[in-house]
Design a binder for these strands. Structure first.
Length: 992
DNA sequence: GAGCACTGC
């Protein structure tokens, strides 16, 4: 039996090309061997997967009965509906209970023991890393790099069906003959040695590097493991040794501040690594380009080094020093410049890049190089010349300093991610570069992206002149009102297409003109630049026919890889959520038990944001045994935020959960949708970080071709009321006329405006008023910001209570979510002391107060009450910040929080919440169900609420979500007559 | 009687 499986797998993998893989994808389901150890109680059911997807078929019919995974299914279909069914069901239920209890216990134990081992593990992994560093030093970095380039050339030709066809190829005068095109295998070694010699010459310093031709490869944001691992590993060093020379840097002594000489020495040591980065040889051209033009758009691929080097290349340019300009608004002279800002979409990225660049420059973090993220600012107004910050932070600075006076240049990194933050920042920056900070002494703007969308961005920054004319003409008619988003989208996409043909930035087929050092010499206001990345080749495989159940398909593919592909090489599987991950983890573990003894073992690891930190870290550690393959089951978190080393095989289900907003009903929902092409490429790219890799797509090639090129920008998918408030508070009152890269639909914008008006943030003409300005300063959604402003009013007088509750609402769920029913019962009991008949909001307040009351045993207390300690700690941070902001907004000092909360007090708190959430209300109708007060839609109280099952006159809720049916989450009881003064403007004539 | 991807101020 075992041999049979073995052969079955082997057959599929003797030869490795797409055609064979087609067979592999369609081979019969993995048979489950008979001699599997009898399943322990926990394999008795197949919770989740079987229930959810009936199509799953994991074993052939004859083997079904042997399979613990399916025994339950066959049982239930076979047994007649006798009186024993009931007891059987009971039995099943109990078994299920036991199983989940066991699982929970196991997980808790695991977490605990891991936490204990952490110290030892760190020691161990650091030792390993030191060894690896030494090894890396021995291997010539240059050889490594050149080999990569050659492989890239070959890869790029063979894969990537998503090439743009209409690309002009430009012959290039100064290139090496054999380098450009398809190098036959025999030539490869020759090329490597040739390039190696060249590189060695370069390293000894004999003249500038001849411009090497490179090929565009899988787009992927530039991120080295040091950077990407960090969200999960707080230590400055990743525990995993990495062959990437950038990642394995000498580490600083942790104990005290390093001496200046030490810093210099380290900086010197790092210089060698920096010189190997693809961007290094282009620094002169970059500087030159920015002397000539104020805007530069750069396509920088994975590992090009753009994020770490750009600041250092520019910091000593003459235009960085402070200079006087005329502020057109006041007519007065102001002093501007002196610092380069580099924005990132994620906090960890900003912090780690700053740390790294400080090391490279040999300076203390916070002096010449610093960062600013929420809750953490390590930069100095006088000293800092390179500052990394999140895009949200840049927008925050815009609020108090509309000219961004501190900065000589702003670099927008990872622009292709198109978060609302980056999009708004780019709109504002463009306005500055062509307005108040334009001209010869103007602000420099550098936009860096990893996808071909850069060309669209270049167009966006270029079309200022046209736009101005257009806006003047269209002002009355309102361009967006009239045409809506479709026309805008259409316009931009056709623009980018024509641009591809004329632009020197090559796309995939344009091998001839791939030299980034060549700049477009034209009258364009935007300089364009391309820097190749460092990425190993990846073989792509597609499923031959559509896959009905991708969890099942992933299961088979994982085993196929495991049997057919050599070690080492870990497998990274992309799925959409925790549910799927847990289901697949269970299945793989079951089947792995039946593997032949001489087949390497597997170590299955989940990875998603909600997973406890200690368990996340396992992904970065070595497999517990030698000759063991790690199989990482991850959500989208592994696509951008986290880089796992050691991965050579990627399995991509082709789906992702995305938020969608339907403005008409004002409802946000989370849906499983197909990924975009660039997302799929990004995922595939994860297989080629350290060596050549393979990517198995669980969808057909035809399917791939129908995917959208890029992910829909966030601003087109979400509620934009918050974005509108940001715009208006920063001087852009005409939100319909703001120059978005992609404008939200007219419907979405007007819904947002309407909401803000109802909240009292805008006056009748749509201008922001005092209330709106206050709200805009708070790091909260407009609704929650409104609550805070209301709570600060003297007659309400419950500011510190409101802050506590809002802080609880703005961090991750502060309650644990136990899996087993027993645990849930236990949790209910433990939390009884917090329960209030008013509902969830006051319950949150009591939890916060309970946590506060603990002096030294906070963690224990949290554990006992099923409260998430990590969430509580970030809650405390957020509260500190909110208090700070509130104190700034009103001169009145925060009153000390009262010890008890009287019913009257509770009413006042809830009335404040109603000011921000009057639109999220429902009332009881005669049939005993709830219907929303606006729109009269049915809605039920979510089972997670303390008010679940209760019948109340009316309810208010913070969240509306649609899963199996419409649910209200975070619910409190209200009275109908409170609604009248919650938003008189909005409810004015309506019955309330 | 349900179950939520990922960020950010």
């Amino acid at each position: 039996m075992l041999g049979g499986i073995h052969l079955a797998f082997k057959d599929g993998f003797v030869r490795r090309d797409t055609a064979d893989l087609v067979n592999v994808f369609s081979i019969p389901p993995v048979p489950k061997p008979n001699n599997i150890a009898p399943a322990p109680s926990e394999t008795g059911t197949n919770k989740g997967r079987n229930r959810k997807n009936k199509k799953v078929e994991l074993s052939s019919p004859t083997q079904k009965e042997d399979s613990p995974a399916t025994s339950q299914q066959s049982q239930s279909t076979k047994s007649p509906p006798t009186e024993s069914t009931k007891s059987k069901r009971q039995e099943k239920k109990e078994r299920k209970k036991a199983e989940w209890d066991a699982k929970c216990r196991a997980r808790e134990d695991e977490a605990r023991s891991l936490a204990g081992k952490e110290g030892k593990l760190k020691e161990f992994t650091e030792g390993l890393q030191r060894k690896e560093e030494e090894k890396a030093k021995r291997i010539s970095g240059a050889t490594q790099k050149n080999r990569t380039e050659v492989q890239q050339l070959r890869f790029a030709q063979s894969s990537l069906p998503e090439k743009k066809a209409n690309v002009q190829t430009k012959p290039e005068p100064e290139t090496m003959a054999g380098d450009a095109g398809s190098a036959p295998d025999a030539e490869v070694d020759f090329l490597i040695s040739k390039k190696k010699r060249q590189r060695e010459r370069e390293l000894i310093g004999s003249g500038p590097a001849p411009s090497a031709k490179r090929k565009r490869k899988l787009g992927e944001p530039d991120s080295f493991p040091l950077l990407d691992n960090s969200p999960l590993i707080p230590s400055p060093k990743p525990p995993n040794p990495s062959p990437n020379p950038v990642a394995s840097s000498p580490s600083l002594p942790q104990s005290n501040l390093p001496h200046k000489a030490q810093l210099r020495a380290q900086s010197h040591a790092l210089l060698k690594q920096r010189e190997l980065l693809p961007i290094w040889e282009h620094q002169h051209d970059l500087r030159q380009a920015l002397r000539e033009k104020n805007i530069l758009v750069m396509l920088g691929e994975t590992g090009s080094g753009k994020s770490t080097q750009i600041g250092q290349f520019l910091v000593s340019e003459p235009w960085v020093k402070k200079q006087r300009i005329n502020d057109p608004r006041t007519g007065r002279e102001v002093l501007v410049g002196g610092c380069i800002a580099i924005t990132q979409p994620r906090r960890v990225a900003a912090v780690n890049l700053a740390r790294r660049v400080a090391q490279e420059m040999g300076v203390h973090l916070g002096d010449d190089v610093g960062y600013a993220v929420r809750f953490d600012n390590k930069s100095s107004i006088e000293k800092t010349r390179i500052k990394f910050l999140t895009d949200g932070m840049l927008l925050q600075e815009l609020l108090h300093d509309p000219l961004l006076k501190r900065y000589s240049a702003v670099v927008v990194d990872e622009a292709h991610e198109r978060t609302i933050g980056t999009d708004l920042a780019m709109g504002f920056l463009r306005g500055l570069v062509y307005g108040a900070r334009g001209g010869e002494k103007g602000l420099k703007l550098i936009v860096m992206s990893a996808t071909i969308e850069v060309e669209r961005m270049a167009r966006f920054f270029e079309r200022e002149k046209d736009m101005l004319e257009e806006t003047v003409v269209d002002r009355e008619g309102d361009r967006f009102m009239a045409n809506g988003v479709d026309e805008v989208l259409e316009k931009s996409s056709s623009a980018s297409e024509e641009e591809f043909t004329g632009c020197h930035i090559d796309s995939d087929e344009d091998k001839e003109a791939a030299d980034g050092s060549e700049r477009e010499v034209s009258r364009s206001t935007v300089a364009r630049f391309q820097v190749p990345g460092r990425q190993f080749p990846i073989e792509l495989y597609h499923a031959p026919e559509p896959v009905a159940d991708y969890v099942d398909a992933a299961l088979r593919t994982v085993f196929q890889i495991h049997y057919g592909e050599p070690m080492p090489g870990d497998i990274l599987v992309f799925l959409t959520g925790q549910d799927e991950i847990e289901a697949l983890q269970k299945l793989i573990k079951e089947y792995a038990q039946g593997m032949d003894k001489n087949v390497p073992k597997m170590c299955v690891l989940p990875l998603y944001a909600a997973l406890p930190q200690v368990l996340q870290q396992k992904v970065f550690q070595h497999a517990p045994e030698r000759n063991m393959r790690k199989v990482i089951l991850a959500t989208n978190i592994a696509e951008t935020s986290v880089t796992v080393s050691g991965v050579r095989y990627v399995v991509d289900c082709g789906k992702v959960k995305t938020k969608r907003y339907r403005p008409r009903i004002g409802l946000e929902s989370l849906l499983v949708t197909p990924v975009s092409k660039s997302s799929a490429m990004q995922r595939a790219g994860r297989a080629g970080r350290e060596a050549a890799g393979k990517c198995f797509r669980l969808f057909t090639e035809e399917n791939f071709l129908t995917l959208a090129d890029t992910t829909v920008p966030e601003i087109l998918r979400c509620d934009v009321s918050s974005a509108i408030l940001t715009l208006k508070s920063r001087g852009q009152d005409d939100v319909l006329g703001f120059d978005y890269i992609d404008a939200p639909s007219r419907e979405s914008l007007s819904k947002g405006l309407e909401q803000l008006f109802a909240l009292g943030a805008l006056d009748k003409t749509g201008k922001i008023n005092a209330m709106g300005r206050k709200m805009a300063q708070l790091p909260l959604s407009p609704g929650l910001a409104r609550v805070l402003v209301a709570a600060a009013e003297p007659k309400m007088d419950c500011l510190s209570e409101a802050i506590d509750i809002i802080a609880a609402l703005s961090v991750e769920n502060i309650f644990m979510t136990p899996q087993s029913e027993d645990k849930r019962e236990e949790m209910k009991e433990a939390q009884q002391e917090f329960e209030r008949r008013e509902g969830d909001h006051l319950m949150l307040l009591l939890v916060v107060r309970g946590y506060d009351a603990q002096q030294s045993h906070k963690k224990l207390w949290a554990e006992k009450h099923f409260v998430n300690d990590r969430a509580m700690r970030s809650l405390i941070e957020a509260r500190k910040q909110l208090r700070h902001y509130c104190q700034r907004l009103s001169s009145i000092p925060l009153p000390p929080p009262p010890q008890t909360i009287t019913p009257d007090h509770g009413v006042r708190i809830l009335k404040c919440f109603l000011k921000g959430f009057f639109h999220n209300t429902a009332r009881l109708v005669p049939d005993g169900s709830y219907r929303t007060i606006m729109g009269s839609q049915p809605v039920g109280i979510h089972p997670s609420s303390a008010l679940f099952g209760k019948k109340l006159e009316a309810i208010m809720y913070n969240e509306f979500l649609y899963t199996t049916k419409p649910f209200a989450r975070l619910v409190s009881a209200i009275q109908m007559d409170w609604l009248v003064d919650a938003s008189p403007m909005y409810l004015g004539g309506a019955e309330a």
